[in-house]
Amino acid sequence: MGLAKVWVYAEAVEGTVTGATLELLTKAREVGDTVEALYVGSDADSVAATLGEYGASKVYATDPGETLGAAIAGAFVAQLATAHAPDLVLFAQSYEGRDAVARASARLDRTVLSNGTSLTVDGDTVKVGAAIFGGLTLVETVFEGEKPYLAAIKAKSFEPASAGGGPAAVERVDVADAGRSEQVKLTARHIEEREGPQLEDAAVVVSGGRGIGAAENFEPYVEALARRLKGASGASRAIVDAGWVPYSKQVGQTGKTVKPRVYIALGISGATQHMVGMKNSDNIIAINKDAEAPIFSVADLGIVGDVNKVVPQLLELLNK
């Protein structure tokens, strides 16, 4: 037996529903009798088709206007949860999802199980699995106390599958009391030019670490190789902390989890913090000067060598 009502906090980027949202909807169908979505954005009518296709019968939507959507999302979720009593609300462990679940949790006074990579339901018992300590340890945790239960799940935890459903019915909601969160104004949006796929969706991911030597080497080595392989570029925490590349590129425990067909680690030693984000890739190639680097313990092909030498040769061969 599943849960009576499961909600998914839906997100879309530039009008396209995110992969993580589709994964959550697919899982929600498996564990819930009724699946509904919550959406903050001005384009609810257009995303309702995809949300319905993946199993949502209804989407509660609010238009944030000039306010940052993520800022009022918690009040929106809490208001609806109080009115409609869902058993479980699933959020993606994304930028917007984290803000939404955090604010909702404080409003509703409910705990959050976060960084989930699995979800199982047995009667009223809801269990969330997560990998800790760089993926070395798997922990399962069950909710106690009153519903609704709130869970934040990492992208790529479930396989998305269409349910072939028609568009979800859109029910518009005004957020009655977002408090001072309404004062968070979105004044400009900058889309950085990006060629190729999103980091989390890419079939090939090329990541750089300290071993690439300098910030200016990221473009000619990491980006260039990613472009050539029609993949996405990523980074270890070390070079994000050093300010070489933005946080959005970080792969690892405190960044993104990726499961590409091929993961290429350039000059990454393989701290546990990094490994949790990539070690479930289908194939791993590593280049590192240090033969003892932990990254080699998970690499299908390891080259003990200098990134500055091997990558230019590799690009030359590939461009022949």
């Binding site: 070395l136 080699f296 690499a299 091997v310 990558v311």
Partner: peptide
């Protein structure tokens, strides 16, 4: 919340490792 299970993740086996002798690429 209550932790119901703690276990070691299955390890991933390492593959081949080569010293770069100019043929790494």
């Amino acid at each position: 919340q209550e932790i119901t299970s703690i276990e070691a993740a299955p390890p991933r086996a390492a593959g081949e490792k080569f010293e770069d002798d100019g043929t790494g690429a």
